[in-house]
Design a protein around this nucleic acid. Structure first.
Length: 278
DNA sequence: ATTTTCCCCTGCCGGC
DNA sequence: TGCCGGCAGGGGAAAA
């Protein structure tokens, strides 16, 4: 499932390739992908636009156009966004959108489960900033994301730490997989009350979140399911996961058996020895 | 205000 | 072998 490292991998690959290109032709193959806009409205809005950059806000992508307009995309569970040097007709499954550039290359958006979306953003810069501010919280890889800030964000929160970390309005970009990995590395049980973490625990969690995300970006994301990068290739972070999907296996730190439970309706992997019950 | 539940969607997997 | 229920989890709306 695409989380911050997966979306960042796609962003950086696309950022090297599509800025400066103009959308000569756009096609919508599934109207749900651009809902509530009508496909014809969406196509009309993006056709002829030149892409300025590829930006990421949490798990969202923004493609600002030189006209001042901008498009946003979210892959949700199974979405894929691939750049192709030639025509898109190369067997991409579950094709939802196609953007054909004026130089013959193309950007295709595929999604097996129809959760992914593309939509248009406010043209006014202030309104657009306001829009993103309402969607996403602190960026965990930003320089401004310090242990002190993390402590402040968790302060007074009565919910368990895992769903708190999954709340995109607080910290943006973490999903089920990297929360499990970060909590394991920081030796914190997923059901600990968020506001109850001690100062050393907050420091450890801050370090763990950034470390796991950085390693995952360096590995090009985790292809545990349908994820592929911006060029259609697999990532390798799945080989470096320590607890996620490792139920019944030995903890790499203490050899205890990794367990899987349900926390906030999410499958949760943790080490009962390294991450003691609250 | 914050936290929890439900929903969407379809490939996959285990059980019978 | 084949059918089928349950699972997976992103975000957002709705409910608590």
């Amino acid at each position: 499932m695409p989380e911050l490292p997966e979306v960042e991998t796609i962003r950086s690959q696309l950022a090297e390739r599509i800025p400066g290109r103009t959308i000569a032709r756009a096609e919508v193959f599934d109207e749900k992908t651009v809902s509530p806009l009508e496909p014809v409205e969406f196509v009309e809005a993006v056709t002829g636009e030149t892409i300025l950059a590829v930006q990421r806000y949490g798990k969202y992508l923004e493609l600002p156009f030189s006209s001042g307009k901008a498009m946003a995309l979210h892959l949700r569970m199974t979405g894929r966004l691939h750049w192709r040097p030639g025509s898109a007709d190369d067997g991409t499954r579950f094709l939802k959108l196609e953007f054909a550039f004026d130089d013959g290359s193309s950007l295709v958006f595929g999604d097996m489960r129809r959760f992914g979306r593309a939509w248009l953003l406010p043209e006014n810069p202030a309104a657009r900033r306001e829009y993103w501010a309402s969607k996403v919280g602190a960026e965990p890889l930003a320089e401004t994301f310090t242990a002190k800030l993390l402590g402040k964000l968790l302060e007074g929160r009565r919910g368990p730490i895992k769903p708190t970390l999954l709340n995109q309005a607080i910290i943006t970009g973490l999903g089920n997989m990297y929360v499990d990995e970060a909590l394991f590395q920081a030796k914190i049980h997923p059901l600990r009350t968020a506001g109850s973490l001690t100062r050393p625990e907050i420091t450890a969690l801050h370090r763990a979140i950034r470390d796991r995300l950085r390693v995952a970006v360096a590995q090009g994301g985790a292809s545990i399911d349908s994820y592929r990068d911006g060029l259609g290739e697999r990532g390798s972070m799945q080989d470096y996961l320590k607890v996620h999907l490792h139920e019944g296996e030995a903890c790499p730190r203490c050899q205890s058996v990794i367990v899987k439970t349900k926390v906030a309706q999410r499958g949760t992997y943790w080490c009962p020895s390294c991450q003691p019950e609250p």
